[in-house]
């Protein structure tokens, strides 16, 4: 019972915050709603035995990515842009497509059933502690994708610096 109440609270707030974030005229307000959204998603992860991911969500998303957005908004002078129309002229078409795809997703999830369970049940994670369990899987089974992810981040760092620097003569 208490679980359902908490889930409904988080679900309602997540949906409301994401709706608010994409409809605000001021970009800054949208980013602040996103911040609330990320905190509530982190709270939802706590229900699903993902404490470490929940911390990473707050540190990386709320702490790093959203601050990056805030910096860029403060660097730019958006006074002209906020006065313009915020949605494209055919936005009902976008709504129609989104709702259609949502219907397909919701319908397809009615038939979901859980397949063979893996080895990391709650008892095993509790015995190993969560961070150790995630680390074990990450650095053994998924070591190569981990290296590729580090390469992606390296490319992003170099790309961002090269793109944003002033032209040298």
């Amino acid at each position: 019972m208490i679980n359902q109440v908490f889930f409904f609270y988080f679900a309602v707030v997540i949906v409301a915050m994401s709706l608010m974030a994409i409809t605000r005229r001021q970009v800054l307000h949208g980013v602040l709603y996103m911040l609330l959204l990320f905190f509530h998603i982190a709270g939802l992860y706590l229900f699903l035995n993902a404490e470490f991911i929940s911390a990473v969500q707050i540190i990386v998303y709320a702490g790093a990515i959203m601050v990056l957005f805030l910096f860029v908004i403060m660097l730019l002078n958006l006074r002209e842009d906020v006065r313009k129309k915020q949605f494209i002229a055919v936005w009902p078409m976008g709504l129609l497509v989104s709702v259609g795809i949502l219907m397909v997703i919701l319908m397809s999830m009615l038939t979901v059933h859980i397949g063979t369970k893996g080895v990391w049940g709650i008892a095993q994670i509790e015995r190993a502690t969560q961070t150790v369990a995630v680390g074990t899987v990450l650095y053994t089974q998924y070591l190569f994708p981990f290296e590729v992810a580090s390469l992606v981040l390296l490319v992003a760092i170099i790309g961002a610096i090269v793109l944003a620097k002033k032209r040298l003569r």
């Binding site: 990515i65 709650i122 990450l138 992606v152 790309g159």
Partner: peptide
């Protein structure tokens, strides 16, 4: 629900790609 940590590891990669995408 599947009692498998692969999903959580995937989320790490998604977050890494999201960070890269935001920076670029």
């Amino acid at each position: 629900y599947l009692e498998d940590l692969a999903g959580q590891v995937m989320v790490f990669f998604v977050i890494a790609v999201a960070a890269a995408e935001a920076a670029i």
